[in-house]
């Protein structure tokens, strides 16, 4: 077993374990933190796979995203600390079966499909970033621009939906 294989397995296991913890704890803050740890473990897994840029990006992005999520959890939940052990699940059996069947189907595809030859050469971190930068500004520029515009649209839409509705006809 190589060191790379060990670390990919270790961080993959950590990501999955923290993903399970998200739905096992009664505390919503702990749920958000578990999701943060899960996503960070995946970032570390990317680093183990020598995808340095994507690994660092994943860790930075998810750290901020999950911190915001934790704040929303505290704002919206009736029992954010999980002191009352309130059950917030439904159709548990069906969900468990569906989740398990999806997992088994995905594993079967991963194991039984012939993915072709494994690449023997691999660009270093600096070359990866250069290649990605050129890809973003050449062939995939339209897709990249569309992603940016879509985020902007989503931000405007989210603000429009969330904004306090005007009370029409009310005298000031």
């Amino acid at each position: 077993m190589t060191a790379q294989m060990f670390f990919i397995g270790f961080f993959g296991l950590a990501g999955v374990w923290f993903g399970i913890v998200v739905f096992r704890t009664y505390s919503m803050v702990r749920s958000a933190l578990a999701l943060l740890f899960s996503q960070t473990a995946l970032g570390a897994m990317f680093l183990s796979m020598q995808a340095e840029f994507l690994g660092v990006l994943q860790i930075m992005m998810m750290a901020t995203e999950m911190s915001i999520m934790a704040i929303f959890m505290v704002m919206f939940m009736m029992d954010p600390g999980g002191l009352g052990t309130m059950d917030m699940t439904h159709q548990k059996r069906l969900s468990l079966i569906t989740g398990f069947v999806s997992f088994v189907a995905a594993v079967a595809v991963a194991v039984f499909v012939d993915w072709g030859p494994v690449a023997t050469t691999f660009p270093d971190a600096a070359q990866q970033t250069v290649d990605l930068g050129l890809e973003l500004l050449n062939r995939s520029m339209l897709i990249f621009e569309m992603a940016g515009v879509t985020i902007l649209t989503a931000m405007i839409a989210a603000t429009a939906v969330a904004i306090q509705p005007l009370k029409r006809g009310k005298e000031k």
């Binding site: 397995g9 899960s38 989740g99 999806s102 995905a106 991963a110």
Partner: peptide
């Protein structure tokens, strides 16, 4: 290993 990790995350997420 990576694909199995991805499959497990997918299953947990579906649940």
């Amino acid at each position: 290993i990576a694909l199995i990790s991805g499959a497990a995350l997918f299953g947990v997420g579906i649940y």
